[in-house]
Nucleic acid binder design. Structure first.
Lengths: 92, 92
DNA sequence: TTGATTCATTCAAATATTTCAATAAAGTTA
DNA sequence: TAACTTTATTGAAATATTTGAATGAATCAA
């Protein structure tokens, strides 16, 4: 279905969201909102909005522990679509 | 560079542009504006705008012959980025 | 229960994208 | 040249996205 694809690409077509994916890929770990806020200049609500879009597009998954939410890349989902997100995001 | 990636994903995050890519992939040939206008309901300036975005993102290339412009997928560019456009666009 | 921490939601303003009517541009044909 | 065909550009309205201040919700520690 086209809508799934469009949602995926829309999610990946914003500077901040590409930065999130890039960071997660190169550090190969989880990322909390706070950690990202320490590194980049943007408001917490804006970041929350971007994380939501990435989750909604199935690019990220979340693990909640206490008040922290840890985000990580859902590599299987992207691999099944034939997208090598690391290659795209790092080698251009 | 992020801007190249973002431009690529932005280009692929619109219904009409996904349709164009899908059509080109499944028919494995060239497509002129007129041919596409016969199949879908949209104005000629709108279609021209969409083709421009796909060209600008290096997803399509164009061959001009007389007054006709024939668009086709630049498979090498996408392959180098690790994007299997056929898989993405058809199998979801 | 109170205060602190972390993330989500609401809402309105700023910005960007999409759309098509009108028109231009470029090649083709008679 | 004049009429025709195909695509591009301009400009303005409609629609969608992005942003952060204010506020809410959930968890934890004291």
């Amino acid at each position: 279905m086209n809508k799934v694809v469009i949602k995926l690409f829309k999610a990946l077509s914003h500077e901040t969201r590409v930065e999130i994916v890039k960071y997660l890929f190169s550090n190969r770990k989880e990322l909390s909102c706070q950690e990202f806020l320490d590194k980049f200049t943007l408001s917490q609500p804006t970041l929350s909005h971007h994380f939501n879009k990435l989750i909604d597009a199935n690019i990220l998954k979340v693990r909640k522990e206490g008040t922290s939410h840890f985000y990580s890349i859902d590599r299987n989902y992207l691999k099944n679509l034939g997208i090598d997100i690391g290659k795209i995001v790092n080698e251009t």
